[in-house]
Nucleic acid binder design. Structure first.
Lengths: 130, 130
DNA sequence: GCTTCATGTTATAAAACATAACATGAAGCC
DNA sequence: GGCTTCATGTTATGTTTTATAACATGAAGC
């Protein structure tokens, strides 16, 4: 189940569709972009292309506006959210069982051939590659 | 987890996007429609709108073509598939545990109030509503 | 009363799409 | 070889959608 995020981040929707899905006007959607709240892709012909994740974000923005936030406030929310996740990325935690298994597996391969792995400690600090 | 099929059948993609996702030309996509293999929705302005399910179907069609089927053959495959599922719909089977629970629950409600349900047999034959 | 913010409205140009007609290469048949 | 059919390419023409930019406006805050 790794392709789900990929699907959600595929930029395939034209602004007209996004208008219907969010009940926002084109003016609003473009304005939020000018305010650095969303970052749609562009097609070859310069059309904006949105992902499902973008649509969700626009719905979030609507909620924040209903709560009385202004553009700067919403931007701050997202900036902070991003800073947090950046931090998490720089820590050695957040390794799933699967990651650990893969790392161990790779190290065994590098250590020589396809021998049956025996118990062993990793030599380098565990860290996700970029 | 009921909204997944809904999402997959949301008609939101313009033909240009579908072209990229399937590596088919607009000519091909429209031709397959003329041959009753796909049935995209239309926007207010008469633009074709495709769902993710449509995209999957187009990829299937590509595979069938690679296998040497022609339009009539592919149509036959889909017609038959549909007849089969029509049949299944008319049988009393295919009720999931969840369905049974819902039916029982509704009958308890109808039977009066929010009393703690006791063991009981359904009076009518189990059958999914349309 | 003056600003600012979020949005509406209008004008203009370009891109995308719809439909329809004609063109074509491959395959099958006589 | 000629003829037909099938799946697709190509071209022409008109409509819809989108982009950008400028000006307009109502509400809120000072």
């Amino acid at each position: 189940m790794r392709g789900k995020e990929l699907r959600r981040s595929l930029s395939v929707l034209p602004i007209g569709t996004v208008m219907k899905l969010t009940s926002l006007t084109a003016r609003q959607i473009r304005y939020y972009e000018s305010q650095k709240l969303i970052f749609p892709q562009r097609s070859d012909g310069n059309r904006r292309l949105y992902s499902l994740a973008d649509v969700d974000r626009l719905l979030e923005i609507k909620d924040y506006l209903d709560d009385g936030l202004n553009m700067a406030g919403i931007r701050e929310v997202y900036d902070q959210k991003q800073r947090e996740s950046e931090q998490r990325k720089n820590q050695d935690h957040q390794l799933t069982d699967d990651d650990v298994r893969k790392i161990l597996h790779d190290e065994f391969l590098q250590a020589g051939g396809l021998k049956t792995p025996s118990a062993q400690q990793p030599q380098a600090p565990l860290q996700k590659p970029l």
